[in-house]
Nucleic acid binder design. Structure first.
Ligand SMILES: [Zn+2]
Ligand SMILES: [Zn+2]
Ligand SMILES: [Zn+2]
Ligand SMILES: [Zn+2]
Lengths: 143, 143
DNA sequence: TTTGACTTGTTATGATGTAACATGAATAAG
DNA sequence: CTTATTCATGTTACATCATAACAAGTCAAA
């Protein structure tokens, strides 16, 4: 995953520096949405800078290059689980276990774009995030 | 609009008190997304409390009763333009003029729910917000 | 008219995010 | 190899968004 990321970045003339790589690793390790300050704590504990811009810059870089996503509902970030595929996915967030799933959102996005076009509105970027129960937690909740 | 709101609230055993009414009026007057602190400034200038909870409580109340919406992308609130209809709308936000449109999002929501169901995920609440250009700004931008 | 629920206000603090500037590493030009 | 330029990292300081906890006032029902 990291090698793949490094290659994709090099192709764009961008570098996966130590902070950036470590930030991506941290997101990948937990595979869930993390707040910027949570990431920052980890980075600081490992000898990187301990001021907010350190984390925000690395996260912003990863988002710009399609290696991570920002979740508006949670004020949080998460590693991209399918880098290179559909980079405008819909997110499913489990309210019980915080699990995060990433769906190719083309059908949803199309429906939205069409709906908007009826009002003459041009959609440029769409945020599609759902809160609910993942399969595991739904099973657990059943009586 | 206000009378209608008052009636709907009374039916639910809730009251449209002065702060709440003024907050709703402020949102309705500008018809765009406003930050909580912007609302607070207006309230404070008119003799209401000047501490954040004053605005946040009124806004939360309005959202709970379907008279306003919260926009995740903007950390902001806006009066509901169609109270009582589809209360899980999609939002279109113009990046030029901040205009806000509210669309009945049933088709989009259905597409999302179906997509999620394929992964066994149960959608409970969905955030669907699009950034783009409203018709007026799109016209203005054309060469 | 007392009781209890609700509303409004406050203080204080927490959480999230960015501007501006100084220093240091990597690359490119000479 | 040396210098110039760009990019990256770190800092301080501040801006913005949001809530917890408590005190005082209001309202309507018992
Ligand atoms: Zn992705
Ligand atoms: Zn779950
Ligand atoms: Zn509405
Ligand atoms: Zn516009």
């Amino acid at each position: 995953m990291l090698d793949q990321a490094r290659d994709r970045l090099a192709a764009n003339g961008a570098r996966l520096t130590p902070v950036r790589q470590r930030t991506l690793e941290i997101l990948l390790e937990s595979h869930r949405a993390m707040g910027a300050y949570e990431v920052l704590d980890r980075l600081a504990a490992e000898g990187f800078g301990r001021q907010p811009p350190v984390a925000y810059r690395a996260l912003e870089f990863l988002v710009e290059h399609g290696l991570a996503h920002r979740l508006q509902r949670l004020n949080a970030f998460a590693a991209c689980l399918h880098p290179g595929h559909d980079h405008a996915p819909a997110f499913l967030i489990c309210r019980e276990c915080d699990m995060l799933a990433e769906l190719p959102a083309a059908p949803v996005r199309d429906a939205l774009t069409e709906l908007a076009a009826e009002s003459g509105f041009q959609v440029e970027r769409a945020t599609i995030e759902a809160l609910g129960l993942c399969p595991a937690c739904a099973d657990a909740a059943r009586p």
